[in-house]
Nucleic acid binder design. Structure first.
Length: 288
DNA sequence: TAAAACGTTCTA
DNA sequence: TAGAACGTTTTA
């Protein structure tokens, strides 16, 4: 009759997860920091990602992040941006109104990651590579119309413009159908979960610690039987077990993660993969 | 080594 | 076909 249940011995440290100091959040954490919390509290109000950061630092929200794994690299990449891309003093004048700032660019990239389950599709990858000065890794010959096509643009403008363009102006990005595949295929890892920038490309681009990209890619490419959670989708971001679903109730026998924390990617059948969502909305199959 | 969690199989 | 149970792998 251990009526401890979910409410049993909730610790005050769990309250750290809440940004609101007066938030009456009382949770119980397991060894992995997963919180068991009744459905009524947690599931109905899925927490924003920023609420899981230790200090709710607004600056950290600006960084590229999606889960606890990526906390550290945020600051690293931001430092990189500061150190490597800080314009010389004479260029610190106001940027042209039409040119996004690096901060805006970062937010754009963050939005890309947020919105695409962490996958970088080709146009986004192109933007990142360009941003890192890796245009040469794109295949030459105008195959990448729209990404490598801009001329007469300063590098800074190119970086920002191409990234924004990658997000919003994808229509002229030529895939297949005469346009050809604009990237060096070696830069990408094709996995059941999607297409990822290869580690090498990430490293070269200074993006080695992009959330989940390298980790997931390596995990899958290594031929492990088990797939890993993508770490990017809403369920993966969730850090709270509902304690009420069948998986939670039958944890001992079911061996299943809370239904509300089940990775969206893992819900899909692996065979449904090897398909890339093109910016045009069409699906590109790597293998027929 | 225990807990977490994915994959497979079984059952309703 | 969805959910439960179990085997197995992974991770801390």
């Amino acid at each position: 009759m251990s009526s401890g249940g979910p409410e049993g011995d909730r610790t005050a440290e769990a309250q750290d997860l809440s940004c609101s100091p007066d938030s009456p959040v009382t949770e119980r954490r397991n060894r992995s920091g997963i919180i068991s919390e009744p459905l009524s509290k947690s599931l109905k109000h899925s927490r924003a990602l920023s609420q899981y950061t230790p200090a709710c630092n607004p600056a950290s929200v600006n960084g590229l992040h999606s889960n606890g794994h990526t906390k550290s690299h945020l600051t690293k990449s931001q430092e990189r941006h500061h150190h490597q891309q800080q314009p010389p003093p004479q260029q610190q004048q106001q940027p042209p109104a039409s040119v996004p700032t690096l901060g805006k660019l970062d937010r754009t990239l963050e939005q890309m990651l947020e919105g695409q389950n962490g996958l970088l599709h080709f146009a986004q990858a192109a933007a990142l590579l360009k941003r890192a000065g890796m245009e040469h890794m794109l295949l030459p010959g105008g195959m990448g119309v729209g990404v490598g096509g801009e001329t007469g643009v300063t590098s800074g403008d190119l970086e920002a413009a191409s990234a924004v363009e990658a997000v919003s102006g994808l229509a002229d990005f030529a895939y297949g159908m005469g346009g050809g595949f604009p990237f060096n295929p070696g830069l990408f890892i094709m996995t059941p979960a999607g297409v990822f920038l290869a580690d090498s490309a990430l490293h070269m681009a200074g993006l080695a610690e992009y959330p989940a990209q390298s980790e997931l890619a390596s995990a899958i490419s290594s031929g492990k039987k088990k797939r890993k959670r993508c770490g990017m989708c809403q369920p993966c971001r969730r850090r709270i077990n509902c304690d009420q679903c069948s998986s939670c109730r039958n944890r001992k026998t079911g061996h299943q993660i809370c239904k509300f924390r089940k990775c969206d990617e893992l819900k899909k059948k692996p065979s449904a993969a090897l398909e890339v969502m093109l910016p045009t909305g069409a699906a590109f199959r790597w293998f027929q």
